[in-house]
Design a protein around this nucleic acid. Structure first.
Lengths: 132, 132
DNA sequence: CTATTATACTACTATATTAGTAGGAATTGC
DNA sequence: GCAATTCCTACTAATATAGTAGTATAATAG
């Protein structure tokens, strides 16, 4: 029941970009150095954020990344889901894990409640909230 | 970010005991059959619950397990912590993971908030709540 | 008093996930 | 053209998960 490094690093990357880019592109190398994260591993994490449409990128010399939107427009939940996968705490609640005994399972609604408090919390905060 | 089978099964075991034992001892075999969980795996899970003091046991013929307390006296959070380990969603918040950059880490209080909503939720429900 | 039925304990194992490494192709600015 | 960058795919070591397996210990019915 742990958030992995992917989600944790992703959040730090997004914060780093929000703070350090003033409409400039920031290179992965710089972020990795500031955040003390391996270049190559960070590459994969940024790729996920990029695929999700959260970043603008520029290739080539003096290229890099910057946020595609304003900090307040990013819900933390979305950033985590893009890198962690769904935040559902129980396999049975996911689509693939859909459970046949759902109806009479006495734990089911408890887990649904847990799912709810987690997702509501992470979706109630934006990147801007974390920076201040 | 998933609760493992240990926590999920543990909860089902405790519910099974709460429903099926009327002060009688229930054998592991019976629980395993009802819950469709491997005998041997369940043994390990029950051992954890037992170690935590949540069960009374009787060995030998017609022995088994029963709850040590009333259903309403068990917080779900305690059952999960006994089997899953701590429910802290972030390594940095645990004792071994204690982070040196805690002070200026912009994610730290966010994670603490997540930790709080999770633990408050699971501690707000008792075994009795799930049975009804 | 012994066969049966149960818990208690310790060690092993296959699979999946996590946390990275590694190497090179494509793009751009100077 | 060259250096600096992103983009893409594959590989790998370590750890965690979800079990198996075997045996010792205890209680009880007959």
């Amino acid at each position: 029941m742990k958030i992995s490094t992917k989600g944790r690093y992703a959040l730090r990357v997004m914060i780093d970009l929000a703070i350090n880019s003033n409409a400039n592109y920031i290179s992965l190398k710089d972020i990795a150095a500031r955040q003390e994260i391996s270049n190559k591993y960070l590459e994969q994490i940024i790729a996920m954020l990029n695929k999700a449409g959260y970043l603008e990128t520029a290739r080539g010399n003096s290229g890099g990344y910057r946020l595609a939107k304003q900090a307040k427009e990013y819900r933390i939940g979305d950033i985590l889901r893009a890198t962690e996968g769904d935040l559902t705490p129980i396999y049975c609640l996911t689509e693939e894990g859909e459970c046949s005994r759902k109806e009479d399972c006495k734990t089911h609604s408890f887990w649904k409640g847990l799912d709810k408090v987690i997702n509501e919390y992470v979706d109630s905060k934006t990147l801007e909230d974390l920076i201040k």
